[in-house]
């Protein structure tokens, strides 16, 4: 199989641009809170609610934009599926690395300014500088959200309005990913602690995340493996 260098490069390039803009905005908000109010927590931690949505839409774009592009350029669904899977497998760690970088830059800023960088939510990591666990937590989260995006986008592409039925399953993939992390269930508009007494091991989290992403990719493949290209795009 050919390595999806251009697909991955285009996705990473766009993610890098968005991350830079996002980091600038978050930093401005941080400084604003510090100047006009009281800064007690990590603002980057709260801001990480947003990137998982970005991950979801990256998954959507993978199907909505690149599946038709690949097939129209003579690639098979199988070739696209393999390249998309490799892209997801490398893209999610890259997004997670950007999140880690955000935490580290924030730590630097907080240290220089003398602000307290407390975490407001339970995490796998106790400190933002605990790089491996920060990376792992967001890696699993991004994997789950990206494959939820590919799965739901595939369903909408194939069945249009019927794709609505895929939303509960897509949410299920997200729940599975969050459950693998085991700290807190954070769904859109819903948030509650999972009440897990013992912290899951790194291997358990990783296995949960990989399992969730494989399941999501398999569910996506079951839809796209013989999907016809639509004659007209909505």
């Amino acid at each position: 199989m050919r390595f999806p260098s251009r697909l991955l490069a285009s996705q990473l390039f766009f993610a890098g641009l968005v991350w830079a803009a996002f980091y600038a905005v978050v930093t401005l908000i941080t400084v604003g809170i510090a100047v006009f109010g009281t800064l007690t927590n990590s603002v980057w931690e709260s801001a990480t609610q947003v990137p998982r949505w970005f991950a979801l839409f990256a998954g959507v774009a993978m199907i909505r934009e690149f599946l038709p592009l690949y097939i129209a350029h003579g690639q098979t669904r199988r070739q696209f599926g393999a390249q998309a899977a490799v892209t997801v497998a490398l893209y999610a760690p890259a997004l997670s690395a950007l999140l880690v970088l955000g935490y580290l830059l924030e730590t630097l800023l907080y240290n220089v300014a003398g602000w307290p960088q407390e975490l407001a939510r339970p995490h796998l990591f106790a400190s933002p500088t605990d790089v491996p666990l920060v990376f792992l937590e967001y890696l699993v989260e991004f994997l789950a959200w990206i494959v939820a995006g590919t799965f739901m986008a595939a369903a909408f592409y194939r069945w249009q309005g019927g794709g609505l039925l895929s939303i509960p399953l897509g949410i299920g993939l997200v729940v599975l990913g969050e459950a693998a992390i085991g700290t807190e269930l954070r769904l859109p508009f819903i948030r509650f602690p999972l009440g897990v007494v013992s912290t899951p091991t790194v291997l358990t989290v990783l296995a949960g995340g990989v399992g969730c992403s494989l399941l999501g990719l398999a569910m996506t493949w079951s839809i796209i493996r013989d999907v016809p290209l639509r004659n007209r795009l909505a």
Binding site: S5, S10, P68, I71, A72, H73, G74, N231, R232, L233
Partner: peptide, 29 residues
């Protein structure tokens, strides 16, 4: 299929951000 090219009104091969991007992927695929 690698030896077949169908250009439709739906514009699958160009439905992407910029002209440059469309050619970037066409060249690769």
């Amino acid at each position: 299929t690698g030896e077949i090219c169908l250009i439709r009104d739906a514009g699958e091969t160009i439905d992407i951000d910029k002209v440059d991007d469309a050619l970037y992927f066409a060249e690769w695929l």
